[in-house]
Design a protein around this nucleic acid. Sequence first.
DNA 1: TCTGGGGTCCTAGGACCC
DNA 2: TCTGGGGTCCTAGGACCC
Length: 357
Amino acid sequence: MPRWLLHVDLDQFQAAVEFRRRPELRGQPVIVGGEGDPSQPRKVVTCASYPARAFGVRAGMPLKAAQRKCPDGVFLPLDMATYEAASEEIMATLARVAGAVEVWGMDEAFVASDSDPWQLAAEIRSAVTELGLTCSVGIGDNKLTAKLATGFAKSTGKTSAEPEHDAGAAGGIFQLTAANWTELMGHRPTDALWGVGARIAKRLAELDIATVADLMAADRQRLAAEFGPNTGPYLWVLGHGKGDTELTTTPRIPVGRSKSETFPHDLTDPEEIRREVARIATEVAEEMLAHNRVSTRVSVTVRTKTFYTRSKQRKLPQPTSDIATIVDTALAVIDRFDLDRPVRLLGVRLELLPLDE
DNA sequence: TCTGGGGTCCTAGGACCC
DNA sequence: TCTGGGGTCCTAGGACCC
């Protein structure tokens, strides 16, 4: 009996959650991000509704740019608490319909099927629709193919102009497996793979590995020599459409906790920079404490006006939950930076002591 | 249009020890 | 005096993801 992995991905998640409480906005170009004020600098789009995307608005784009592309867009502030609550609702629904769920971020999850994956996918979509939301489902023989299948599900299911893929398509559900892997993925650039980004793709291209098919034909030893003993072979495996087939249903225990802030205007006064580092360190330490965790290491990140980003860290003499010690350490670390250029971002990250002893 | 915030994991080099 | 090889800890940086 084959085991299928299903990847569930909510459509336009944050915008869709907003539509539930403001149904009059359905079908409108809605842009969620920052405080919902496109005149605010250094804030970006977290989620654009499909109508907003038709104007060219994309996640990650500055709000100001989004407004230029879509002047009549409805800008809404981020409301994380509401999205988290919606996410829990969704995951509970998936658990009810599909059993074990591996949560992958707020609006994604993997589930498994030992029988008919299309049937399960349809049931999931129907259950999510009852929540007033919609989702796409990718079916794969592992997590990689399932995840990539969701991308096909979105592009084939959503755009009527898109020619119908015969292999495995059915409105919002798509199946990608070893059987159609080469046909559907072989000609695509390597960064179409989940885990290959722009940088790795560029380095691969320099080795004359431009497409997934090229990667499949590449020499493993060469990849290992180029990318390291772990990453190299991993890339080769990715290229062949292989991946993890196990669901991890126990919630992951965070190994770190961080907080960073891009300031609306650059900071230049070293004393002000120290004060902000102390404030951010206090906040993240308090959150750590609220979760009953203990810190082992403090890392401070500085991003200057030119986007030059560096971090320095210091191991604590012993694991501690003492806020004053953590703040003092963060200050000692920031003092090792040359603060002679305008600072646009400061961040503090705490590494956490593993929970199991 | 200048480029958010919160995560995870991997690699590499130097220090230090045997 | 012209120099080993491994293991581990620590720090810095890179890359990816949602």
